[in-house]
Nucleic acid binder design. Structure first.
Ligand SMILES: NC(=O)c1ccc[n+]([C@@H]2O[C@H](COP(=O)([O-])OP(=O)(O)OC[C@H]3O[C@@H](n4cnc5c(N)ncnc54)[C@H](O)[C@@H]3O)[C@@H](O)[C@H]2O)c1
Ligand SMILES: NC(=O)c1ccc[n+]([C@@H]2O[C@H](COP(=O)([O-])OP(=O)(O)OC[C@H]3O[C@@H](n4cnc5c(N)ncnc54)[C@H](O)[C@@H]3O)[C@@H](O)[C@H]2O)c1
Lengths: 242, 242
DNA sequence: ATGTCTTTGTGAACGCGTGCACAAAGATGG
DNA sequence: CCATCTTTGTGCACGCGTTCACAAAGACAT
C-alpha cells in the first residue's frame, strides 16, 4: 500500500530513463506532423527544435531505443514514428474509462485527442442516477454500480478519475480492485495505490501556483533592482516571525 | 525568442529549488485540510504522509523557506500555511484570463478550485463571434478583439490557453505582447516565448502515453517471466529494421 | 536543574539527467 | 577510390534532487 508516487525511480525497465519516456510523446507528435507533410527524413537538430528540446538530449533519448539514424542524413520519419509508437505501446488499442462525467469529465469525453492515438473511450461512468443513459460525446453514461463489470468485460487497464476530490480515493480503490493498473487523476488529492499501479496526476491548481511563484519573483526582482539603484541593501529581512 | 522551455534551470531565485516549489502547493493543500480540522501542529512525518512524499524531503524543502518548526513538536499549521502562501505569492490576488471557451475552457471557467486560492477569472475570451456576450460560469464571454485591452485594463499577468492547437501560438504571442508573462497551455503544441515568460503545459495525451508505456512494460514483464519459466532466453531481438 | 524523549535541520553520499564536445560513420561529389 | 562534409552516437563532467543518518534543539516530566 505505497502512497501514490509521482515518479518511479525503481521502475526502470530495459534501461529507458523515465525522463526520456516523458519526451517520447513530444517527439512522436512532431514526427507525426512531419509525416503528414510527407517529409522523408529529419535531422536531430530540426526535430529537436520542433519538439522544443536540446538536440543532444534528443539524440541521447533515441540512443536508448537503438540506432535508428543515418549519419550525415538524419532519421527516417516514418520508421521513427513506428519505433516510438511501438516503444510507447501505441500499436495496440487501449480501452479507457472515465469516471465522473461532470464539467471536466464531459470535456475529456469530447476530446478528440483521445482516439487519435490508440486510446479508445470504452465507457463513461458516473454516480448520479440522473446521468445514467444520457449520451455524452455519443456514449451513454453508465452508473457506478456497473463499474466492475465494465472494467472486466472490456479488459480496461487505464482509468481516468474526474470526480470530486472527496470521491477520488474510493473510486480509485474500486478501479484497482476491478483490475485497473494505470490511473490518470484530475482530482486534487493524493491517491494511495498498491505497488504495481501507476498514478499520474493533472492538477490545474498546482500549475497556477507554480506560475504565481515565478510571477511574484519576477515582480520582486524588478522592485529590488529599482531599490538597489538608490541604496544597495543586499537583501531584505527574509524572516519576521509574528 | 527562446523556444518554449519546460523547466528553468537558470531561473533560481533566492535558492529555492524548482522541485521544491512544485511541492509547496501539495504541502499547502494538506495543511489547509489540517487547518480546517483545527489541528494546531503537525510533524514532518504526518504531513509528509498526507502529501505523499518522503519526510526528509519535506523537511529539506521547508528548510529552504527558513526554520519554521519546533524540535520535539513539529510545525505550527496556521503559521506554515501563511508562510507557504506568502512564498508562493498567494497572499495577493492574481487575475487570470482564459482564452478559448470550448469544452475544456468552459470546464475550467466552472472550476471552483480557481477562486479558492488567490486566482480570479478576470475574463473569458473566444474568437467565435457567436460566443460573445454569452455567459459561461456567470461571466460574459468577450471577443478576441478585446484581448489586449482586457489584459492591460485588469493588469493580467497569467493567461490560460484552451484553444485548438493551431491557434495556440498566435494567441500566445498576443497575450505576451499585451503583457502576460505566465502561460498555462492546454493545447498540444510547443509554444515559443521570449525570455522572461514562463510556460507550463498540461497535456492529457502525453500523460496517457506515459501510462501506456508502463502498462505495456508490465504486460511484457509478465510474459517474459512466464516464458523464462520454460526456457531462459535472456532477451528478445530488440531491433528488426524493415 | 537535570535527564529523557521526540523531532527538526542538515551534512554528506549517491544517482539521475543534462549538455558539451568529438570521434566515427556514412553520404556525396569528383 | 579518395576527399570532404554532414550528422549521428556517446564518453565525460557537472549540477540538481533525493535520501540517509545523526547531532542539536527543544519540550516535558521529575
Ligand atoms: N473543471 C475543471 O476545470 C477542473 C480542473 C482541475 C481539476 N478539476 C477536478 O476534477 C474533478 C471534477 O471536476 P468537475 O468540474 O467536472 O466537477 P463536477 O462536479 O462538474 O463533476 C463531478 C462529477 O462526478 C460525479 N461523481 C461524484 N461522485 C462520484 C463517484 N463516487 N463515482 C462516480 N462519479 C461521481 C458527479 O455526479 C459529477 O457528475 C474535481 O475533483 C475537480 O477538482 C476540475
Ligand atoms: N477537451 C479536453 O479534455 C482536452 C484535453 C486536453 C487538451 N485539450 C486541448 O485543449 C484545447 C481546447 O479543447 P476543447 O475540447 O475545448 O476544444 P473546442 O473546440 O471545444 O474549443 C476551442 C475553443 O477555442 C475557440 N478558439 C478557436 N480559435 C481561437 C482563437 N484564435 N482565439 C480565441 N479562441 C479561439 C473556439 O471558438 C472554441 O470555442 C485543444 O487544443 C485541445 O487539444 C482538450
Amino acid at each position: 500500500m505505497a502512497t501514490g508516487r509521482n515518479h518511479r525511480p525503481a521502475t526502470r525497465s530495459r534501461g529507458i530513463p523515465e525522463a526520456t519516456v516523458a519526451r517520447l510523446p513530444l517527439y512522436l507528435r512532431a514526427l507525426t506532423a512531419l509525416s503528414e507533410r510527407s517529409v522523408p527524413t529529419v535531422s536531430s537538430e530540426e526535430l529537436a527544435a520542433a519538439a522544443g528540446v536540446n538536440s543532444a538530449k534528443l539524440r541521447k533519448d533515441f540512443s536508448y531505443l537503438g540506432s535508428y539514424g543515418t549519419r550525415g542524413v538524419g532519421y527516417d520519419v516514418e520508421y521513427l514514428v513506428y519505433q516510438i509508437s511501438r516503444e510507447l505501446g501505441l500499436t495496440q488499442d487501449w480501452p479507457v474509462v472515465i469516471v465522473g462525467i461532470g464539467n471536466l469529465g464531459a470535456a475529456l469525453a469530447n476530446y478528440g485527442g483521445f482516439a487519435s492515438r490508440g486510446f479508445r473511450v470504452a465507457a463513461l461512468i458516473d454516480a448520479d442516477p440522473a446521468m445514467a443513459g444520457k449520451p455524452v460525446a455519443g456514449i451513454a453514461v453508465q452508473h457506478t454500480d456497473e463499474l466492475e463489470s465494465i472494467i472486466s468485460d472490456n479488459g480496461v487497464s487505464i482509468g481516468v478519475i474526474a470526480t470530486p476530490a472527496g470521491a477520488a480515493q474510493q473510486v480509485c480503490e474500486r478501479l484497482v480492485a476491478a483490475g485497473v493498473t494505470s490511473i490518470l487523476n484530475f482530482a486534487p488529492t493524493v491517491l494511495s495505490v498498491p505497488d504495481g499501479v501507476d498514478v499520474r496526476k493533472v492538477d490545474l491548481s498546482i500549475e497556477l501556483q507554480i506560475l504565481a511563484f515565478h510571477e511574484q519573483r519576477k515582480a520582486g526582482e524588478e522592485a529590488e533592482a529599482a531599490a538597489s539603484r538608490k541604496g544597495p541593501d543586499g537583501d531584505m529581512p527574509a524572516v519576521m516571525p509574528a
